[in-house]
Design a protein around this nucleic acid. Sequence first.
RNA 1: UGACCCAUGGUGUAAUGGCAGCACAAGAGAUUUUGGUUCUCUUGGUCUAGGUUCGAAUCCUGGUGGGUCAACCA
Length: 571
Amino acid sequence: MTEINKPGEDKESKSLNFIEEIIEEDLRSGINDGRVHTRFPPEPNGYLHIGHAKSICLNFGLGRKYNGKTNLRFDDTNPVKEDVEYVDSIMEDVKWLGFDWEDRLFYASDYFDQLYEYACILIKKGKAYVCDMTAEEISETRGTPTRPGKESPYRTRSVEENLSLFEKMRQGEFEDGTKVLRAKIDMASPNMHMRDPVLYRILHASHHRTGDKWCIYPMYDFAHGQSDSIERITHSICTLEFEVHRPLYDWFIREIGIYAPRQIEFARLNMTFTVMSKRKLLELVNNKYVNGWDDPRMPTICGLRRRGYTPESIRNFAETIGVAKRDNFIDVSLLEFCLREDLNKKAKRMMAVLDPVKVIIDNYPDGQVEEMEAINNPEDPSMGKRMVPFTKTFFIERDDFMDNPPSKFFRLAPGREVRLRSAYIIKCNSVDKDPATGKITLIHCSYDPATKSGMPDSNRKVKGTLHWVSEQFAITAEVRLYDRLFLKENPDETPEGKTYLDFLNPDSLKIIKAFIEPEVLKASIDDKFQFERIGYFSVDPDSKPGNLVFNRAVALKDSWNKSEKVRENLT
RNA sequence: UGACCCAUGGUGUAAUGGCAGCACAAGAGAUUUUGGUUCUCUUGGUCUAGGUUCGAAUCCUGGUGGGUCAACCA
């Protein structure tokens, strides 16, 4: 029995996922001299989303767990789709999630010279050739998964001719699309990716990093595996759809004769009530179904951040969902749970009324103001207390009063008593209604001075506790209430004649004016609060002095509202 | 009708030939100056048919179901 702690063996000795098993197996067998080196390799052609967060947490998490390293590498092999805007946002998102690539920021474009050399090696070995067929011809002669393809007539060109043509391609002697470099493998392979795949294409386009130095660019397949090899990545972790590419990567590595990383594929994240494909996300933005990539309804990292998600909650989510090879469809309520769990411990409590109805305490002295002491966070006494002004008139939620309540209703109703949070017990005596609409305009109550919060007689039990905001001291703020972006659990699953857009939730955003206790004036952008009994809210960057804007990140669990809904459905 | 991958409660994920466990969701109760939190409990699962074995979620074979692959995208 050895006492040495193997890397990754935490004190709690949690079970390993299949990737950790492979890594520990490699560590035991001494491959890579005990090195663990991973990478996160996005293409800078869009914003990162929660699915990328899973991959980021996985790769950086593994690096951290096994005392290894993790690179950030931009796979920027297609200049026409890429932009520095995306490079910047991706770096910001990775950092925000709490990960650090230190001095290991790389680009596939860093390796363009090396990759060109690799291509020449293949040509010299007779393993690659310049092909003059058009894209259509190449496509037509590739065959189908069940039928073999046909060999290109240019497949038998001599090494010298290929070398010279490839050099001319590089020199810019040919138009876009007139020639490509192809690997010479097997046009009858059952694996489509082995049927003489394109290695280089001509693209007279400016690259966001290499400018006009190149007019030929390697395909992703010819760049990715070699880039991993150059960086001496030990475990190249990617999503399942690249499983069929692996034999090709292995072929390149073997034929070129360079270091071989081990590729491991895992199932990408799918989540309910949203879409995850870049194409669809882009469409939502471009067609203004949402207000940009960072719209709080988007599953993008910047959207979640603006919504009020914390890095901890997302990391915890990634940890909780685990990693495996089978397709998965994660309930968004798990993400929401992770946020609540985090913010419950951290968020300062405040009182805010979203849908107000006015209350007057008839037996309370006119003009009197009492400062009530309120606890900032019952989960964390170190967060201290604050004072909240109480006056004769204040607002409560319209939902917190019922004229003819059912027996299970614990809130305010004629003749009933409730506690006002951090203040008095009050009793409802009567209500004023608008004679035309029947809508309640004012609730008349009386208070019991002996029940002031903290006083000896204040401990009388009443069933309900309501939040409230003094009319005189209320601060008004814009509150943006978000709901699911889609009405359907899986918007990607579309019946005939419909698209995912047909399932957009028309009520995914409601903007209201709320009344909030004066403490809110101390809030600054990105601060997070629990509005008691309502939910968690984050200060939106749109906020201006004197005009605060809040996003509802997630509502509190609401077992009353839920049971109400169930009742309605039963009747 | 090809190749490859996958199959454990509603959703995820463990169990590595030896008691099917955990989380979320759902339901019940206790506590509570948030119908929140916390705590306790409950419901519910190995796709199917064979085989190997003292013993199979696990290994083998067939079936079924799902996914991926036919951009000069990544």
